[in-house]
Write a protein that binds this DNA or RNA. Structure first.
Lengths: 229, 229
DNA sequence: CCAAAAGTGTTGACCGTACACCCATGA
DNA sequence: TCATGGGTGTACGGTCAACACTTTTGG
């Protein structure tokens, strides 16, 4: 079109997603086996190429939908990796996103690519290219966000008990929390709606279930409230 | 090379930089007049296109060097903007960086592109494309970083007084700080080395100059210290 | 009846914030 | 001598962290 642009070179752009889930008290990520060269058969993040006529955000949602079968996932752009030799096949710039999935919804969902598999963060295989770096960056961001925004709820079932929420935060921060202090703090925010039901799956006594009240949160934010855990 | 890559399309990639300076008690950004169509003659961030054989970081440093005449600036990748129609000329993905400059070093430096001009943030012109959004994002990031990392010193002369440092933080946070509390906190970190000299430029009494001790900071960080202001 | 998880309050330490006066000096 | 900015200490309130026992119930 305009000559000025044409003096420059174009590049492939990939979108890679770090997809987190929480299950059995552990943080997990969804990986898949790469099905083309180079590094075919190795474990990789979930990704794809940016197409014409789609924004980067759209591409990320498309890829997430395709691999998880779920839409409207929590998702945030992370960082763009642009080393010249990061992909030995061709020069590819990768824009990364991290996303949060409720694993039980994923398990109930069948319409999806099936070569993907959940791996506990602590025991995941080595990944191709610079994907391990991407995971490190995603974990850093997840820690920060979990502290300042109520995103933990995106990883738990809609109904959850306080002890379950606490174990999620323990998995994210990689340290134990005091249960009295934790409960005091989270309940004092008035963001959790107590239900009559109990979760009897973990203990004999059973723990009361709660729901995150998104509307209440939005209203508080408008008034200057700042989530912090 | 591999057929798989070739099924996908390539894109122009731009690097745009939000360059901050601090002068006369105000935060400023460096802008320049765009010299090609579309939007020729309008104010724009400083940027350029990613070339073959350079990493994105390298491209950002190249562009910063070209427009400021300075190298080794503090610089951090911010966000990647990828809406389809963000640049009406051609589809261009923009990877943004923000950078911090000591304005007095910039002023002493002559070997540079000269169409650039400093604008106070509060009175800057409307920028082309989505560049105003980029500035907003850079300001958000700057606030967070200034709080958690000792980056303020990148915007001040090597030797500075405590009141000057305070006024920088006031400009970044957009609110007034208590001078006793500010001084107490910053000095209690033991990161500032007091000099014998005074800055007589602002007050008649003169304010003692300090230097940021980068080595001390690195050592403290190794021991788990976390900067916070 | 006992093992295992749920649930509950208090205290001391520390940190953030608010606040007012004297000092040094150039004009 | 006076206007201007530099420099100093204390007290209060709120938040964070540490800590131990009782309750419930399935097996």
């Amino acid at each position: 079109m305009t000559p000025y642009y044409e003096e420059n070179t174009k590049h492939y752009i990939a979108v890679d997603c770090i997809i987190f889930g929480f299950d059995e008290g552990e943080l997990k990520i969804l990986l898949h086996k790469r099905n083309f060269e180079p590094e075919k058969g190795k474990w990789s993040l979930i990704g794809g190429f940016l197409q014409d006529n789609e924004s980067i955000d759209f591409a990320a949602r498309r890829i997430l939908q395709q691999y998880s079968g779920l839409s409207n996932l929590f998702m945030e752009q992370l960082y763009t990796f642009g080393e010249v030799e990061r992909d030995p096949g061709e020069r590819v710039i990768s824009v990364t996103f991290y996303a949060l999935i409720r694993i039980e919804e994923y398990n109930n969902q069948l319409k999806r690519e099936t070569s993907a598999q959940w791996w506990p963060i602590s025991r995941k295989p080595t990944l191709i290219f610079d994907h391990d770096k991407m995971v490190v960056k995603a974990l850093e961001r997840l820690k920060i966000r979990a502290k300042n925004q109520p995103i933990g709820f995106e990883l738990l079932p809609r109904k959850f008990s306080v002890p379950r929420l606490q174990s999620l935060y323990e998995a994210i921060y990689q340290r134990n929390l005091d249960k009295r202090n934790f409960r005091k703090k989270i309940l004092s925010m008035n963001l959790l709606q107590k239900l009559e039901e109990k979760d009897k799956g973990v203990s004999k006594k059973g723990a009361f279930l709660y729901q995150f009240d998104k509307r209440k949160y939005s209203k508080l934010v408008e008034k200057g409230f700042h989530f912090e855990l």
